[in-house]
Simulated scan of single mutants.
Amino acid sequence: MRDVFRVGIIGCGRKASTIDDEAHLRWLTNYDVVPSSHTSAYLQNPRTKIVAVAARTEESLQRYIARWKLYDVRTYTDYKRMLELEELDIVSVVTHADMHAEITIAAAKAGVKGIICEKAMATSLEEADEMIRVCESNGVKLLINHPRRYHPTFTTAKKMIEDGVIGELKSMRGAIWTFLLHNGTHLWDMFCYFAGDADMVWGYVAEEDVQDPGGCAMIRFKNGVMAFADVMTMQGFNMQLYGSDGMIHIDMFKEGFRVEVYEDLIPPSKDRPYYQFRPKRLVRSEHIEIEKPFTPPMQAAVQDLIDSIMEDRQPRSSGYDGRKALELGIAVHASARKGGMAVTLPLTDRTIRIISR
């Protein structure tokens, strides 16, 4: 195993490169922080070295090289040629979603050790299944870049739930702006992060003639937790996590999150039916601050992939996790096509294809 992992980046647009230039515009404080791009995260990790980059046009490649002053990096307009000629350890797939499966599968077959693929993972579950199968059969670690899994706001909230601070998790509500897959994938992923595996979805699609529209959904998880999603109207990202003894509110316009804890004014009794009103009083209301500095999520994802290769384990945001998020988004479409009737998971039709924006 090399001390330094040789990296190839496929796609050199916004998330691969220029998103770092938007730092002064960033208003989603609980989302991502610089370095946000794949390139900057690799450059700041002492165990990774970018040796090659591929894009569709020479113009894109030259802008990328000039932006990062990586004059010794080899460039390709054919990613297959790059995979053939370069001895790569890690590949970042930072293209539009309709190319994710093809490139990920090719990289896995080319002998890389790890892949970071942008969200949404794929355009169909059939593609996602094959991505996972090929990576597993070739011993490749696949990480799907859902950065909230690496952000301390969300990891701290999850730890508080696991520690029983708000009692047993009962329901979740979440909102994110438009696009059921391109943006909605973040919400689907966080629902699964907090509640595990879902088994039923009811969905509504706002614009049937749009490839990746907004919509709404209700989701049931195997542990009984219910989730309600608005992927239509919200600017930003918000989540409310309701437990039997409290709630957590994550507001993307404020760092950290708010936790409230309640206690029963009347002790629970087996003699009272579960639906009887149980008055409670507030015993704790606190804004949880996130300790700084913390490792930016993109940097944490790169390090997680390296660690998963070295330790032979799944990344914290694995291909399996990415497929769960994708399945929820596609299930909303599947339900909407049945007039909002419930669909059960896993979906039997793996061929439904939604190209995210």
Rank of each mutant, 00 (worst) to 15 (best):
V140Q: 01
L305R: 03
R6M: 14
T178L: 14
D129L: 06
A331Q: 03
R74L: 15
E87V: 10
C192M: 10
C135L: 01
A55H: 10
E260K: 13
P35F: 11
K222C: 12
L125E: 03
G214T: 02
I105S: 02
A101K: 00
W202V: 08
G139Y: 07
A227K: 04
Y320W: 14
A101G: 02
T348Y: 12
L143P: 05
Y42A: 14
A229P: 01
R47L: 14
I115Q: 01
W177L: 10
G174P: 02
L142E: 02
I266T: 11
Q62S: 11
Q211Y: 13
D212M: 06
P273Q: 06
H287W: 14
T95A: 06
A229C: 03
I354N: 04
A66N: 09
I176D: 01
K109L: 15
R6I: 14
A110Y: 01
G174R: 04
T233L: 15
P279A: 02
I248Q: 03
I250H: 03
I65R: 04
T57W: 04
K324P: 07
D230T: 02
E168L: 14
E102C: 05
R133T: 09
E255F: 13
I352Y: 08
D129T: 08
Y275F: 15
Q299N: 10
D312P: 09
A334V: 15
E102D: 08
V53C: 03
K141A: 10
R81D: 10
P297G: 03
K158V: 13
V261M: 10
T123Y: 14
K270Y: 13
F294I: 08
F5E: 04
D197V: 15
V332T: 09
I65D: 00
L282Y: 06
P267D: 02
S244C: 11
E263D: 13
S17H: 10
M234T: 05
A101P: 03
R278P: 07
D89S: 08
N30F: 05
F253H: 07
F237D: 06
T77S: 05
K222Q: 12
A120Y: 13
K324M: 14
P279L: 08
R26W: 15
A110V: 04
A41I: 04
A110Q: 04
G13A: 09
I176M: 12
E327F: 11
I248N: 00
G329E: 05
F228I: 11
V7E: 00
